[in-house]
Design a protein around this nucleic acid. Sequence first.
DNA 1: AGAGAATACGAGCGATCGCTCACATTTTTC
DNA 2: GAAAAATGTGAGCGATCGCTCGTATTCTCT
Lengths: 232, 232
Amino acid sequence: MARLDASRPRKRPSQARSHATVDAIVGAAARILVRDGYGAFTTNRVADAAGVSVGSLYQYFPNKESLLAELKVRHIADLERGLDAVMARVGDAPLPVIVHAVIAANVAAHLIDPALHRVLSTEVPQLGPSDASTAFEQRTVARVRALLTSRRREIAVRDLDLATYLVVRTVEATIHEAVVERPNDLASGAITREVTRLLLGYLTVSSPAGRGPSPVPSASRGRPRGRRAPRR
Amino acid sequence: MARLDASRPRKRPSQARSHATVDAIVGAAARILVRDGYGAFTTNRVADAAGVSVGSLYQYFPNKESLLAELKVRHIADLERGLDAVMARVGDAPLPVIVHAVIAANVAAHLIDPALHRVLSTEVPQLGPSDASTAFEQRTVARVRALLTSRRREIAVRDLDLATYLVVRTVEATIHEAVVERPNDLASGAITREVTRLLLGYLTVSSPAGRGPSPVPSASRGRPRGRRAPRR
DNA sequence: AGAGAATACGAGCGATCGCTCACATTTTTC
DNA sequence: GAAAAATGTGAGCGATCGCTCGTATTCTCT
């Protein structure tokens, strides 16, 4: 009972010396996660790599989880700085320009520390609804949602919430995986260009394909396409 | 040295009894992963939940990793069954029909065991290049790539490889996250409809936005935004 | 029925983990 | 410069982990 908030440092450092210690610990944590993976992420090892004793680590982080949380917070703050700057700068430019700029900013964000980003988002267990990445995700959705709303008349989608979801997920997924799978296309700008085209087409063109009246439906007419035969 | 292949059962079961044991173990493994997460995935616990002793577990799986591998193989086999069936059935239907059917099949696949799928793809560490999900990913890319190639004339993209990548990632990411974030839109078919529209627009429409000549460039004029797309 | 093969059991070994605590060292305060 | 506060140390505790191995049970075959 009376449990400490597991996601906050147990003691606020006051001297410059301890600030350096905390930074060394967080830095070592990132280094170990990137180089050896989450399986090797132990508090003893982190302390070693930071050139500090385990005791010092536990003076500032009540448990392993909180160290992970702090690392996430710092990394996300790094990402968000660039995104905020771009969002503030684009203002009332034409929609294609805005979309392109936002995507380019996301690409830039993913190039800040790609290896760490990958580990944090694929190997590290989520810390529940209070997780920093969850909050970041929500802010991102809100930002995109506000942007789309302000251009509502130029946008040809039925459900703006759904469109927001699709845009956010598509941008994140395509760029994130491209960091390891298609680094050349990322660096050349090809990813930015194509994703921009992908989203602009979706957001601004009403008729799906340029041809025929109602091309999609009646595809899987024969059977209900809900849940298929539930196995086991 | 002379290490066993960590991803294969150490002994082929021959009696019906042992087959049941193996199934019970794999089933319990899935149940624990889904209910308690990867952190609680210990061989002792799995054996307990399967109503079997640890010794029996290690009679068929040389280590914890191999149990995880077998679980992945079985789950992916479940997914792939439905996808193969649809791919074989669509044949030479119009492109919009094919795209819609493939996406619908992916939605159906994600509804087979959503919770397990989520844990396997977000919390469980990858087992290296021999991982079953890596092989599955490669087969998926090859399938989509073949499909796009066979309709090359209808498709208005420069780089077919890049387009394949974008299609695969977009479909997977939007559907996968929708399972937990937008279950209603998944069930109603809204996701299927919108993703179909998104991809068809990208694949078949050449000009980005319907308006103006060259809408995108000169967006972030102030600073270089990486190498510009080399005009052919 | 009896023997050998296949299967199942589970106490417990060695390793490692997260974390504590009694104590040493450095910095600040007065 | 001495007391107090802040910071740093690391051996080691209790828990848990992956996994082994000697033994008990069940099946197959003749």
